[in-house]
Design a protein around this nucleic acid. Structure first.
Length: 1051
RNA sequence: GGGCGUAUAGCUCAGCUUGGUUAGAGCGCUUCCCUGAUAAGGAAGAGGUCCGAGGUUCAAGUCCUCGUACGCCCA
């Protein structure tokens, strides 16, 4: 792409008023027409690479505003790095598989669980899942495009593509060969509605607070020393598991005591007597060590199901605690991981009366066919009716639910495939130690803790729409297993060409093979895998590695990533699966820097949700405020790590304070530079050192800004970058432009050059954050007048701060001038003397007067409309009162404990003498309890104020005093200013262009007439009058307060 | 129950790393001013137990301990 050859060396007009959403649509068209994104990827072959991985959104449902958040961060840094000269590939990706998609399709089709799906047909069901994903991808693409997120959506990776599936198979077979993919019978959280176990990170997303019955049940002892005369008291919050009660566990180290209320005797762990039993119970004095109670038998609470072998006795288990309950823990191995381990050790049977759909087997008395949770009530009532219920309470706790369908989970014993992540736990911890987390607390906090407590990854899912587990098992000898890594390998095993096979269920299920010399047929195990494994495989699977042609080269130059970014809920999701898969397969984590965002909340501080009606959708938000405003909010408003509230107020404030202020400054520049026909190449530009102090200041601030913004973005700190940019824009508009307006009106080359250079750099600094408005400004203000400029700001280079233009101390001096100006304005307001009325002089404290220097004093005079700015001290010592107080910051270092006394001594001293001594000798002496203490200028803050007859404002050590005395000269000058103002208003209301010349005719009496006669030249200059004549018959404008009538005619 | 985070004006948030005199900004509100780029800008005002309690220190919004509330995560 090159600059348009026909470019005339002149600015394009920039309208003062702008409709940002319309502007953005035009820019989108421009980018599309010019192929700007593609051009930004067309870097030199030797450009360093900066690798970014797109975490694939699950394409179920429509995109929400929270999706914009991460996508802003995924866009800002690649744009920033691209401008710095890096090659930053951005391949879009879509997470296509998994339960969320299945659930959505089930709903659409009105299906109610696995049996319905199988009746409907797996082939057709999966086809519907594929359709649903494609449909939602369209909506995400629209939003992605609109917000200006540059990511290559023309060639995305999709986890359902055959090449992707084959890559995942390859990874699994690699893990299998390392002996880390194993099958085990384990108790796992299981959703009976979805018919699948949930992985630990899925489990983490579904805790909900619910109220369960908390039951204390009598278990009468039937052997041992207490047989027939006491009951164990057992506590559980899952009465439904009592049906399959198998044993009672006690801690061998605990002491268990007998307590009685006079009618019965109960056995409870000693520390829990009061908590479990309450009032009215006394200890009998009998006590047993837990280890001595082993194998005491008891009467089980329900006799509803048969047991195949001996059970129902006391077992020992170290995990029993004394925190809750009674210290006697009911065991049901099919429904508890700990229970399973303990009962296996005692060779107890695993009895499970509950079907895979979460309902009791139909032939179980009392609760047959009931949903497990529903059975709680029936069972509790039955226990009560048989006198076994000691106590029942409502127990509120958080209990895991299915993160998608909200069904309460069962812990349920099932055969499952596991990735033995615990075998690489140390490597994971090492890799994490080398990863930069933003914010840093996640690294050793939330994420580090998670790794430290790592458990094996439960990989298999008994579902349909997912990557099929690539394991074939011999039906004659189930110990014989083949884990394949590609369709090619499968073709070789079957002797059929399967290269075009859809690797999904049910097609893959039909592939079987035999092995020469072995009995039996190999059939695939029916499971699919956790979709998190899919997304965690994207660093290589996005290229079809290692099968696809060219994938090795692509992978090797893009692993690991320098940068990934998602919201904090991915800590145990993608952040984990990405690191785990990388470490398992390549022994190296797949990312170096990870930015972890807080959640976006609605304006009311709550999560956006349909039923609260507080949802703000991204497309309408961008249509109203513009994508730049939304991007700025996401990147720069508040801390990205913290949860943040979004609303219309915040967005329109960004538009007004940041975007429009920036826009208006460019419009201002183009208006006057255009009027003068000025461009950067139209003539000699004075070197910076020869320009006015304000020019030097603006450029000094600009290069400081460049340095600061660069540093901030290198640290992924968009908030700091945004704060610096916003304050610079404010300074530029409300001090530099405001103070320099006259120079622009008069066509001052140095002013044009300064503001043009500033807008050039500023626009590039803004480009990653607000790519639309920055592009518009580039197109209108930079491109047309800059030979060889890149055709887009996004193809331009990132500015590098020119340290030689950063003037040490100048910023502080200008700040002082602004502060003095503020004080002067306050003094005027207090004295009710409007700014238009010139005053003879203003006085400031001598220190400030010296620091400002002549040039800034002139600025202050102009801004305050005073004749001169003088030092209070020079105005006459007698007029000035001094006051002095200690500077604690300095004194504290010198005097420590004596600081208050020294400060008091300074305050008590004669301030005038102190100031005189400091001014003359640079040091002074104060009296501290009779002994002299020497203090320097840094130890004392001296302020000055005049004694009387002045309008004085004093703040933070600075003082400004206005001389309010008016003489005729000042009065006439004030009236002339009034006249100028009303004529300017007349010009404006007559619709004259700012450069139109006029003739002015006027009538007035008395002082106003005198003022007009005296200041004719000034007025002519200000209002661009070619002639001013006295006397007008039919005035077009009259100001009664001023006694002035006049006509304005275009010359 | 455990871990982490947060708590500053009516609202949204800076400031806390490195303790210092009278704690800031924007929005909103009241009054006034300015306007030849601005949907802007300026001045004044109302509005603060810097969550609470202890502690360290000459000095605490800032450091330490404990607690409270809220959020997230884990159990």
């Amino acid at each position: 792409m090159t600059s348009p050859p026909s470019a005339r060396a002149t600015y394009r007009p920039v309208p003062a008023h702008v409709d940002l959403p319309v502007l953005e649509r035009e820019i989108l068209d421009l980018w599309a027409d010019q192929g700007t994104f593609a051009a930004s990827l067309d870097t030199p072959a030797d450009a360093p690479r900066w690798t970014f991985y797109e975490g694939p959104p699950t394409a179920n449902g429509t995109p929400g505003t929270h999706h914009v958040e991460a996508r802003v961060f995924k866009d800002v840094f690649p744009r920033f790095k691209t401008m710095q000269g890096y090659h930053v590939d951005r391949k879009a990706g879509w997470d296509c598989h998994g339960l969320p998609v299945e659930i959505a399709v089930e709903k659409e089709l009105g299906l109610g669980g696995k049996p319905d799906i199988e009746a409907y047909g797996i082939a057709e069901f999966n086809a519907r899942c594929r359709e649903a994903v494609v449909r939602n991808v369209d909506l995400f693409e629209e939003m992605t495009d609109r917000m200006g997120y540059w990511v290559d959506m023309s060639d995305p990776y999709r986890t359902m593509e055959p090449s992707y599936v084959e890559s995942v198979w390859w990874a699994l077979s690699t893990i299998y060969k390392k002996g880390l993919l194993t099958q085990d019978f384990r108790v796992a959280p299981y959703c009976p509605r979805c018919g699948t176990t949930l992985s630990d990170h899925e489990l983490a997303q579904g805790y909900e607070t619910i109220t369960d019955p908390s039951v204390y049940v009598r278990f009468p002892l039937t052997s041992g020393p207490l047989a027939g005369r006491a009951s164990m008291l057992v506590w559980t919050t899952t009465p439904w598991t009592l049906v399959s009660n198998t044993a009672v566990a006690v801690n061998p180290e605990f002491t268990y005591v007998l307590a009685t209320d006079g009618t019965e005797t109960l056995l409870v762990a000693e520390p829990l007597v009061a908590k479990a039993l309450g009032e009215g119970w006394t200890l009998t004095g009998e006590a047993f060590a837990g280890r001595d109670m082993e194998r005491w038998t008891y009467q089980r609470p329900f006799e509803l199901i048969p047991f195949p072998s001996e059970a129902h006795f006391v077992v020992l288990a170290d995990y029993v605690t004394a925190e809750d309950g009674t210290g006697l823990v009911h065991q049901s191995p099919a429904f508890g991981a700990d229970d399973m381990i303990v009962c296996k050790a005692y060779d107890l049977p695993v009895v499970n009366p509950i079907r895979a759909d979460g309902h009791f087997e139909d032939d179980v008395p009392l609760v047959g066919g009931q949903f497990f949770k529903t059975a709680d009530r029936v069972l509790a009532d039955d226990l009560a009716s048989r006198g076994l219920m000691f106590n029942e309470l409502a127990y509120e706790h958080s209990y895991p639910h299915c993160w998608r369908c909200h069904t309460p989970l069962m812990y349920y014993a099932l055969p499952a495939w596991y990735v033995r992540t615990t075998a690489v736990k140390d490597r994971l911890l090492e890799e994490n130690a080398g990863t930069n987390w933003f914010p840093e607390t996640i690294k050793n906090g939330r994420y580090g803790d998670w790794l430290t407590n790592n458990i094996d990854w439960s990989l298999s899912r008994s579902r349909y729409w997912g990557t099929p587990l690539p394991i074939w098992r011999n039906d004659a000898d189930p110990s014989k297993i083949v884990c394949i890594e590609s369709l090619a390998e499968l073709s070789a095993l079957t002797g059929r060409d399967l290269s075009d096979l859809d690797p999904h269920r049910p097609y893959i299920d039909e592939v079987t093979f035999e092995v020469d010399g072995e009995a039996g047929t190999y059939r695939r195990v029916p499971d699919v895998i956790d979709a998190w494994f899919d997304s965690g495989s994207m660093p290589f699977a996005q290229w079809g590695y290692p099968h696809a042609e060219g994938s090795k080269e692509k992978f090797e130059q893009a692993y690991p990533a320098q940068y990934i970014c998602e919201a904090i809920d991915q800590t145990r999701g993608w952040f984990y699966s990405l690191m785990a898969v990388g470490t398992l397969v390549f022994d190296q984590s797949s990312y170096e820097n990870v930015v972890c965002l807080g959640h976006i909340l609605a304006e009311d501080g709550k999560k956006m949700s349909k039923h609260l009606g507080n949802i703000l959708l991204p497309m309408p938000l961008m249509d109203e405020h513009g994508a730049d405003a939304l991007r700025w909010f996401m990147a720069c408003s508040g801390s990205p790590w913290a949860p943040r509230r979004i609303g219309h107020t915040a967005l329109s404030e960004i538009v007004r304070k940041v975007l429009l202020t920036y826009w208006n400054t460019t419009a201002f520049h183009v208006l006057y530079a255009g009027t003068e026909g000025w461009t950067p190449t139209s003539g000699e530009v004075p070197p910076v050192a020869e320009r006015e102090v304000l020019d030097q200041w603006l450029l000094s601030e600009l290069h400081t800004l460049t340095r600061d913004v660069t540093v901030a973005l290198e640290k992924f700190d968009t908030q700091a970058a945004g704060a610096r940019l916003a304050s610079f824009i404010d300074d530029m508009s409300n001090w530099y432009v405001r103070r320099s307006r006259r120079r622009f009106w008069r066509g001052d080359t140095a002013a044009f050059a300064t503001l043009h250079e500033t807008l050039d750099v500023l626009t590039r600094l803004m480009a990653p954050l607000t790519p639309f408005i920055a592009e518009r400004v580039w197109q209108d203000v930079i491109l047309p007048v800059t030979p060889d400029a890149p055709a887009s700001v996004h193809l331009a280079s990132w500015p590098v701060a020119d340290e030689s233009l950063i003037v040490e101390g100048l910023g502080a001096r200008v700040d002082l001038a602004r502060r003095v100006t503020e004080l002067g304005r306050a003094a005027r307001a207090e004295a009710k003397v409007r700014t238009r009325q010139p005053l003879r002089r203003a006085l400031v404290a001598s220190g400030a007067w010296q620091q400002l220097g002549a040039d800034l004093r002139a600025q202050v005079c102009e801004e305050l409309n005073v004749g001169s700015l003088e030092s209070l001290a020079d105005a006459g010592g007698d007029l000035v009162d001094h006051s002095a107080k200690g500077n604690f910051r300095n004194l504290g270092k010198r005097f420590g404990k004596e600081t208050p006394q020294v400060a008091a001594a300074i305050a008590a001293a004669d301030a005038g003498a102190l100031a005189a001594s400091l001014a003359a000798a640079g040091t002074a002496t104060v009296d501290l309890d009779g002994s002299p203490v020497e203090v320097g200028p840094d130890d004392v803050i001296v302020s000055e104020r005049p004694r009387e007859g002045w309008s004085v404002v004093n703040d933070q050590g600075e003082t400004v005093a206005l001389d309010l005395e008016l003489d005729d000269e000042l009065r006439l000058a004030g009236l002339a200013r009034e006249a100028i103002r009303v004529v300017q208003e007349a010009r404006k209301s007559s619709g004259l262009d700012i450069s139109d010349r006029i003739t002015l005719a006027w009538s007035a009496d008395g002082p106003m007439a005198e003022a007009l006669r005296t200041h004719t030249a000034l007025i002519a200059d200000e209002v661009l009058a070619t002639s001013i004549t006295e006397g007008v018959d039919v005035p077009a404008f009259t100001d009664a307060d001023l006694g002035l009538s006049f006509t304005v005619t275009k010359a």
